[in-house]
């Protein structure tokens, strides 16, 4: 093997593996630094804060790439899921039910967006629900329904636009296929004293189950 071909093999490998692996990690829906808590992925704040993950370069690069300002250390805790409790991707055609309690916090909100965090068009303006407006049963429990069609009780709309209009509007398919169909569920706990990973793993999180699909 000539030295020229060796150099080109080494360079080729470096570029392909170097760029490929970086891209892979930055595209990941749960990049290194996030933690899994039952069906939820917790996103530590990416900042120059006190917790160990704050300066995680994967999370920081992820934040920069996505153009977001995630909740900071003292703002709250961000939990996301793309899947229901049985591991299936959340899709906007189905009816889902969320049960179980949410960790104690001053305020929490549950909201629906497309896979990259853009709000789904929704004339009823039911983009999400918050702890303060929740209808609870006499024993304090609650369930939240997620579907396109209006549901009695606690309901979050999964968007109203017809699918074809959606596709026409979509300019950049980010994060793979079924962009129009799938959705992201985000649970934000504000003023929660749960910042450390250990305390997060000690609490129960709500679960989303699929009730029916057309």
């Amino acid at each position: 093997m000539s030295s020229l071909s060796r150099i080109s093999v080494a360079m080729g490998l470096a570029v392909v593996i170097g760029l490929g692996s970086t891209d892979f990690f930055l595209r990941a829906k749960a990049p290194l630094g996030t933690t899994k808590h039952q069906m939820w992925t917790a996103w530590p704040s990416t900042g120059l804060g006190s917790n160990a993950n704050a300066e995680n370069p994967y999370l920081q690069a992820h934040t920069a790439r996505n153009g977001t300002v995630p909740l900071g250390d003292n703002e709250g805790i961000l939990l996301k899921t793309y899947r229901d409790v049985s591991g299936d991707t959340l899709v906007r055609n189905c009816l889902y039910r969320m049960i179980g309690d949410v960790p104690t916090s001053q305020l929490w909100t549950l909201s629906v967006s497309d896979a990259v965090g853009r709000v789904l068009p929704n004339p009823s303006l039911r983009f999400g629900i918050e702890s303060n407006q929740l209808l609870r049963a006499p024993d304090g429990t609650f369930d939240i329904w997620l579907s396109r069609d209006v549901q009695p009780g606690n309901w979050i709309s999964l968007g109203d636009l017809p699918e074809d209009l959606y596709t026409a509007n979509e300019q950049v398919p980010v994060d793979g296929r079924n962009q129009n169909q799938s959705f992201l569920l985000t649970l934000r706990l504000y003023g929660a004293n749960l910042s450390s990973e250990t305390s997060l793993s000690a609490v129960e999180f709500p679960t989303i189950e699929k009730v029916s699909c057309p």
């Binding site: 934040t63 153009g67 300002v69």
Partner: peptide
């Protein structure tokens, strides 16, 4: 980078 250096509530 959108990296936070202070937050409060």
């Amino acid at each position: 980078g959108g990296i936070s250096f202070f937050s409060t509530n």
